[in-house]
């Protein structure tokens, strides 16, 4: 048919179109805004509210921030990704798309790609909040004016207000121009957080002005690698969700997408089981331990150079397997 591109270019465009629609749909869900707002706020408020420390400055804040990123991201992917895809398949909305001259694989793959982008935006926002929370956390500081344990109150206030400010700005744009509030919130947050971190570099941790000649954001960049690893795990999680969504109703798809994730916590134990069948199951699960790199940062440590590529390989393999199963399941499904 004239005008309809064939081959790889056409397929890529179809996948990208599906991905774009999925990402927008995921970010527009009310739950996405609630999860994003609450996780970003929680991470920011943590150093101000916590009463204990593990001896190492900022460790509790860092670990809790990464845990919130993981759990919030999983909830986002399940509620805002797996569930809408399943609902579209059940409700007939996907039938229109699948009637187009594109293979059925476009739907789960495109949907997965969109979810991954939405998750990336979420992880980016939470990672910057984690960096700011790390700076806020109580630490020993020696400056020209002060020496002792102190919380960076200025950084704490900025990062605590950032999510609410972003939402307010997104709401204003929605009222004035009708822009999508969910997408706007995440984009504004993604832009403002690094900007705030950059501006805070002109202040010391004790609140004193450093001057324009000096700039030190004072951020613990080691948190980037564990954040990336968490995003990779969320990619695998989204793939599992997309696979379940090809067959299950919305609620079941969202719930079932947690199952391999939860079992992944026990993957190591299953791998050392006495029973062959159980040992065989272990490699099929995404071992969460490979993606949780926070422990490596304890006591000033860092993530090894091989950890992230291995995690990426693990996520890629698992995602490919899940998407392949999902595509096969969708091929045989009557719509």
């Amino acid at each position: 048919m004239k005008g309809v591109p064939r081959g790889g270019a056409g397929l890529a465009r179809a996948v990208l179109a599906t991905a774009r629609a999925s990402a927008l749909e995921a970010l527009q869900q009310p739950a996405a805004i609630l999860i994003g707002l609450s996780v970003c706020s929680l991470v920011a408020l943590q150093p101000l509210l916590q009463l204990h420390s593990f001896g190492e400055s900022g460790r509790l804040v860092r670990d809790c921030a990464l845990a919130a990123m993981l759990l919030g991201g999983a909830a986002l992917c399940a509620l805002c990704s797996a569930a809408p895809m399943a609902a579209a398949l059940a409700g007939g909305g996907a039938a229109t798309a699948l009637a187009r001259p594109a293979p059925r694989a476009v739907l789960p793959v495109g949907h997965w790609l969109g979810s991954v982008c939405a998750a990336a935006l979420f992880v980016w926002c939470v990672a910057w909040q984690s960096l700011l929370a790390g700076r806020t956390a109580e630490a020993y500081v020696q400056t020209a004016h002060f020496a002792g344990d102190i919380r960076d109150a200025l950084c704490g206030a900025v990062s605590a207000l950032l999510p609410a400010f972003s939402l307010g700005l997104a709401a204003w744009r929605n009222i004035r121009r009708g822009t999508r509030i969910g997408t706007a919130f995440f984009v504004i947050m993604a832009v403002l957080a690094p900007l705030a971190a950059a501006l805070l570099g002109f202040w010391e941790r004790d609140g004193s002005w450093l001057g324009f000649a000096f700039w030190d954001p004072g951020l613990d960049w080691r948190i980037v690698a564990p954040s990336l690893a968490i995003w990779l795990l969320l990619c695998a999680f989204c793939a599992g969700g997309a696979a379940f969504a090809t067959r299950l109703p919305a609620a079941a798809a969202a719930s079932a997408s947690f199952l391999p994730f939860v079992l992944g916590f026990f993957a190591d134990g299953l791998a050392s089981s006495e029973h062959l069948a159980v040992r065989a199951l272990a490699p099929l699960l995404p071992s969460v331990r490979d993606f949780w790199l926070a422990e490596a940062l304890a006591n000033g440590g860092s993530v090894s150079s091989s950890a992230l590529p291995l995690a990426a390989l693990h996520a890629a393999a698992w995602s490919a397997m899940a998407l392949a199963v999902g595509t096969l399941a969708l091929r045989r499904r009557d719509l």
Partner: peptide, 12 residues
């Protein structure tokens, strides 16, 4: 509320 908002609010 709608389900996602209700689930979030109730869980929180």
């Amino acid at each position: 509320f709608s389900f996602p908002v209700a689930a979030f609010a109730a869980t929180a």
